[in-house]
Design a protein around this nucleic acid. Structure first.
Lengths: 251, 251
DNA sequence: AGAACCCTCCCCAGTTCTTGGTATGCCCCC
DNA sequence: GGGGGCATACCAAGAACTGGGGAGGGTTCT
């Protein structure tokens, strides 16, 4: 598999704007890499389980049916392992990531029988937004194409990005302009500091901090500090990693 | 760069069990890929108050000093962008991911002057556990080695995994248990409702809402509503989609 | 030289939060 | 049957926040 070949597969995935074209691009990719099936899903974090999920796969119909029941029961070990790792894993190494129950092994055994024998799954998460995973799978009696796992990792991640774009949409709303000083105040507020404490930290008066937060609230048209912090976080004005920094963090 | 070369670099990173060996392995990797610097950090959300961060880099000393002050102020746009993407990004595309403030541009400009000009950063998150990122950087007057970005993505992810292992080995992470009613109260609070309003919405008294929020704060050991909402959001107890349902998207 | 921001500081009135209590009733589990 | 968790409800004091004013000094752009 040559580099330019990977590039073209990748381009096909990146260019996907609908679930259908993404499905086609992934079929081509898994074929070229020597896998027999693929599955990609991305879930936006919501309370209601409405249309905030994308699920594409070319699993055998009989497996898809069985799988849904397992998954709904929260019994899929692959899915659980996705919350325990930073990058892709082979199903053969599942036991290193999570404790495997008899039910888990049973599920994998059933899969093997219907042509979903072994696989490589790459997970991705965005805090506060959602999670997803992309799996490339081989049938029984076929070894996992190990030289392709890096490629599977990359293509899987890009596929998840495409699925996410389809779900989230690409609309870019105009955002309020927040000044640097305002953002600092929001950040310290997000870290749980009061206006007075923030003033001390920044070397300005409490009144000034209140003023910055006041104007920032007006920009976002919100009326509470919680909403202000969330809006700034959602917009990327501040980030989780800025907030949960080193030594102060909550229990 | 041959495949077996990547393999050996990767093996060196995977085998790292201490910060020192990981530092060495990453130096070798960034060198082989044609980058001038690297930086990897992983932050754990911990129960204990001690620092739960791994930070390794070979940035110029002058930049490291400047950077810390920017970073403590939460001014690093790269870090913020990490919460907005599923896989790595070039710094040149930062503006596509987050709004850039004058302060952000200033920070990047200073970086350019001291040899931290352009880079590729790959982020990773594990809900309820922590987040990290790995950057490979070039100096001014050198183009980003674009054919190496896939490799950087893979090696970066593996480096984060190694950093995480080093960190998790000495920390304990547990997620606070939040009851359903508590979560509802947190959610309405995140939506900008007061305790009184939330009580009306849920059909319970204001005092009860206050009590739920009080216990939830204790669980997280935070003292403000902002911090409570953020903790729940980061842990996946609530999600942006839950909060921004229907009426008000940030303007 | 205005206009338009941004940063800084101040006052005040009213509302809301935070923290410390107490209390009842309902589960489930050992 | 008692302990523990949960949901509900109430009280009270003090701290913090919100929204309405005003005001001076700075930069940047036209």
């Amino acid at each position: 598999m040559y580099h330019h070949h990977v590039e073209s597969l990748l381009q096909g995935i990146v260019d996907s704007r609908t679930e259908n074209t993404l499905h086609g691009a992934l079929s081509a990719a898994r074929e070229a890499m020597g896998f027999h099936h693929f599955a990609v899903s991305y879930d936006l974090r919501t309370i209601e389980h409405d249309a905030a999920t994308v699920l594409l796969h070319d699993y055998p119909a009989e497996w898809a049916k069985v799988y849904v029941s397992f998954d709904l029961a929260g019994k899929d070990p692959v899915r659980r392992a996705c919350d325990k790792t930073l990058y892709g894993f082979e199903w053969g190494n599942l036991a290193d990531l999570i404790p495997m129950t008899p039910g888990d092994r049973q599920m994998l055994a059933i899969g093997r029988e219907v042509g979903v024998a072994d696989g490589y799954t790459t997970p991705r998460h965005i805090p506060g937004e959602g999670s997803g995973s992309c799996s490339f799978v081989v049938s029984e009696s076929t070894a996992l194409p190990r030289t392709m796992l890096f490629t599977a990792e990359i293509l899987g991640a890009v596929a998840l990005g495409a699925a996410r774009s389809i779900l989230v949409g690409r609309q870019r709303v105009t955002k309020p302009v927040i000044s640097d000083r305002q953002r600092e105040c929001i950040l310290w507020s997000a870290r749980g500091k009061t206006a007075g404490e923030t003033g001390t930290i920044l070397g300005i008066s409490e009144e000034t901090v209140i003023q910055h937060l006041k104007l920032a609230r007006e920009r976002y048209d919100v009326h509470t500090r919680q909403s202000l912090v969330l809006s700034a976080l959602f917009d990327g004005i501040i980030g989780f990693r800025d907030i949960f920094r080193g030594r102060w963090r909550p229990k």
